[in-house]
Design a protein around this nucleic acid. Structure first.
Lengths: 168, 168
DNA sequence: AGCAATTAGTTTGAACTCAAACCTTATCGC
DNA sequence: GCGATAAGGTTTGAGTTCAAACTAATTGCT
């Protein structure tokens, strides 16, 4: 149960030394793929996303909704566009997301007084309550990640942020 | 251009100290969200994915196809299920993915001789050629990630793999 | 051998996402 | 002011993805 992974870091898998990191149950050789940061990023994100969804999924509020509601809580009156930028989602994704949250009674949308194009967003009481509950799950979930990352967390987060910021 | 991010790590954002990490252009406060590993994982993956797609996207071969073709190249004769497990995609996702690659003439599928349920997969010559080209782009792309991660790469990859593996 | 449980692959339905086109409203330059 | 340009939101279309239901074939158990 102690990770085959980190064992190999030395030898550059040039594609000829097969059978390197296969899972416990004889599976495919990932070859050079396992050296790509991008690929491993996807795998990790994928697993994390799914685990979060499992923990909170019954309510149908998955990571995307969670992130949106967090931003809404901390920035009451924000507009859809700004929300989209904050959570890195296209505005055309944000529209139906908010329609859903509004339909569930978790979010209120009123026209902005200063700009007739835009909508200002706030969580309802129910939204705040739902978010509090959600935060409990999210914390538990992220605690698992914290446990894996251990004291490397600060550096790990810094690298993730750097990737997110520098790939403009 | 030197990351506002890591600056705040000390104070636990309990939701009352607003305006902490907003981007250069007065934007939303991410609040507690920025402390979540899961959220930052998504942002980084997102940006990386999109950058890859931009570099190779004209050909329509995005990261998903790239990963599949890499596994195919290193594991000729593999079955769809095994491929799916290798790249962490559901078998119902793999089916249309391969139909597309086959339609493009990059992959051959023949019935397995030993198991009449399964299909064995191999890259065609065109597939190998396309992949070689793709690898060039992928390497350039991952080099950018390498540059960002620097000498922390080994540890960074180890953490990503640990996350992917331990969240079963 | 024979029946149950598993596995390979496909199909279908729902969710999420982006990009592009579009309308409305603001802002900028002159 | 006025026209061009930009920005906020919505709609539409296409691409990915998973999960569940289903068929066909294989394995396991007795």
């Amino acid at each position: 149960m102690d990770q085959v992974a980190t064992k190999r870091s030395g030898r550059a898998s040039n594609g000829r030394d097969r059978r390197t990191r296969k899972a416990a149950t004889s599976e495919a050789d990932l070859g050079a793929l396992q050296g790509f940061i991008g690929f491993n990023l996807r795998l990790a994100q994928d697993v994390s996303f799914r685990a979060f969804a499992r923990q909170t999924g019954q309510r149908g509020l998955r990571p995307g909704r969670f992130a949106a509601m967090m931003v809404l809580r901390d920035n009451p009156g924000i507009t859809q566009s700004a929300l989209g930028r904050a959570i890195a989602r296209d505005k055309s994704t944000v529209t139906p997301l908010l329609q859903d949250l509004q339909r569930r009674g978790l979010v209120k949308r009123h026209p902005s007084r200063t700009d007739r194009r835009s909508v200002t967003l706030t969580l309802t009481e129910a939204g705040e309550a739902a978010l509090r509950e959600l935060v409990r799950h999210a914390r538990a979930h992220d605690q698992r990640l914290d446990d894996i990352v251990g004291d490397a967390k600060a550096g790990f987060l810094a690298l993730l942020r750097r990737i997110a910021d520098d790939f403009g």
